[in-house]
Structure formats: C-alpha cells, structure tokens
C-alpha cells in the first residue's frame, strides 16, 4: 500500500483475508473519531497540517513521531485541550460520534467527560484515593452508588487489590505507577468512550510501565484508546494501529504489525529504524 493510499483510509478497499494475528482494519469499521483536514496554528506556527485520521472504536491507536511533530497537538485536539493554549487557531474538523467537537453547540466540558485524558506525569488531586476517583464523577452529577463506582473504576484500572484497604489515605502516598493507574481510574469513573493518553509511561519505571501497558490492553475491550508515545517498542507492543507524524503531517497510518515490519513510506522506515535526519 502506498503512503498516499494509507493516508486515504476511507479510499482503501476492504480486505477480505486477514493473516493470523491481524486485527480487522479501521477501514472496515465506522470510526468513533474522525479527524478531517485538521490544521492547528499557534500564532504563526503551523503545528498540524491538514491531517486526516480515523480512530476505530475499541482499538488502541498509537501516534508516534519525533519531538515537535504535532502528535500531542493532534491528541489534544480530540477533546479540545488545545483551547487553553493562547493564540491557538483550529481549521478543519474533529468528528466524534458524528458531531464536530469544534462546532459552536459542542459543550467542551461534556466532551472531556466522554473523551478523557491521561497525562505524561501522574497528577492525582491532593485528596484521598477514594475522593480522587469519586470527586469528578460527583461533580458531573453522578447519582448512582459512589462506592460501587469507585471500586469498579479502581478494578478496571488494575489498582483495586493494592489500595482497597487504604482508600482514605492520600493519593500522593502512592508510587508513581500507582498514581498513574489512579489517574486512569479517575478518567474511567466518568465513563468515557475514548481515553487519550499522552506519554502515560514516560515518568514510570519499567515495572510500572509494564503494568500500564497490560492495563491498556485490557481497557481496549471497553474503551477506545489513543496513545501518544516516544517509545516505539511500546507502540509496537500495545497498539493495533500506528500513525507516524512528521513536521505536522501525518506521514503514514496502518496496522501496527505492518508499520514495524514493512512500512509503506521511506520516512516511516527511516524513523522507526533510527536513521532519521
């Protein structure tokens, strides 16, 4: 598949034969997020240039590329976190479940509930473990059994067994890896449809990283995950699809196993083999 064809995902014919280990193409399922001709400028700087990308539901999509290539800007555009950046201008559309998130009628607060985010550094609130998970849900008007929600969220974040006997302790007393899983539990408690993860393991040691990677693998049965990472081995390990960005452009997107064995674009090849620049 040529790079051009890989970019025009909707134009790619459906494949009828899947090799062992292959996951179905994004092309054959309706995307939950569709980035359409997205351009983002910070002042005069064009960080994202007419990017088109489909995010299939209940898959892990990794975005890789060198520093400054625009991958975090693209990620943050999916739940309008870029709104807080002074001087930002956005053209094009991000369609989430059929609605342009940049349309005037879109409520960014509700959007961020449905499209949650986990950041590079764990950022628990200076509150108890329980309150970290319960607080945002209650603020968003959750009316159900809050104890059940906290337990369920912590279980899904693979943290329950480690904290069930100390829920009233400060979240700041947890290890970095536990804090990051707590942040994931906090995001899950809002019952989002999409989880955006911006280098969620870059501040963690290898053991904690492995726990988060296992968790991502479990989460994709219920959530759509979009992961920005500098760690190409991590992208290869945990994602179903990988998008490679360079200088604000989406160079190539394809199934992860193809990107890391026989990428279609020479720039992708150079990047993943470390021959860039």
């Amino acid at each position: 598949m040529s790079a051009g064809a890989a970019l025009r995902e909707s134009a790619v014919p459906q494949r009828t034969t899947l090799a062992p280990g292959q996951t179905p193409d994004a092309d054959v399922v309706e995307p939950i997020v569709r980035v359409d001709q997205l351009t983002i400028r910070y002042g005069d700087f064009e960080a994202i240039k007419r990017v088109c990308l489909d995010i299939p539901p209940r898959r892990v999509t990794a975005i890789i590329g060198p520093s400054g290539c625009g991958k975090s800007s693209l990620l943050r555009a999916m739940n309008r976190m870029n709104d807080f950046v002074p001087g930002v201008r956005v053209e094009g559309a991000v369609i989430f479940n059929g609605q342009n998130v940049y349309a005037a009628e879109c409520d960014p607060v509700e959007l961020r509930r449905r499209v949650g985010m986990v950041f590079q550094r764990p950022n628990p609130f200076p509150k108890s473990i329980f309150r970290n998970v319960a607080w945002a849900a209650q603020m968003n008007g959750y009316r159900g059994d809050i104890n059940e929600l906290v337990e369920q969220s912590l279980r899904r974040a693979a943290l329950w067994d480690e904290v069930k006997d100390k829920l009233s302790l400060s979240a700041l007393a947890l290890s970095g890896g536990q804090q990051q899983r707590l942040c994931i539990a906090r995001a899950i408690a809002l019952q989002p449809e999409v989880l955006l993860m911006d280098e969620p393991c870059s501040a963690l040691d290898p053991i904690a990283t492995a726990r988060i990677e296992d968790l991502i693998d479990q989460l994709k049965s219920q959530y759509t995950v979009v992961l920005v990472t500098h760690n190409m081995q991590q992208a290869a390990r945990v994602s179903d699809r990988t998008a490679f960005m360079y200088m604000g452009e989406l160079v190539e997107v394809d199934q992860t196993n193809l990107i890391f064995t026989r990428p279609g674009n020479p720039r992708t090849q150079d990047y993943i083999t470390g021959r860039f620049g």
Binding site: F260, T261, R262, P263, Q269, I272, T273
Partner: peptide
C-alpha cells in the same frame, strides 16, 4: 537493539 522494519527483515 530490537530492530524493526528493514533492519528486522
């Protein structure tokens, strides 16, 4: 080195 792409091939 955990090679990928053409290096792996």
């Amino acid at each position: 080195y955990q090679p990928v792409g053409v290096d792996l091939r």
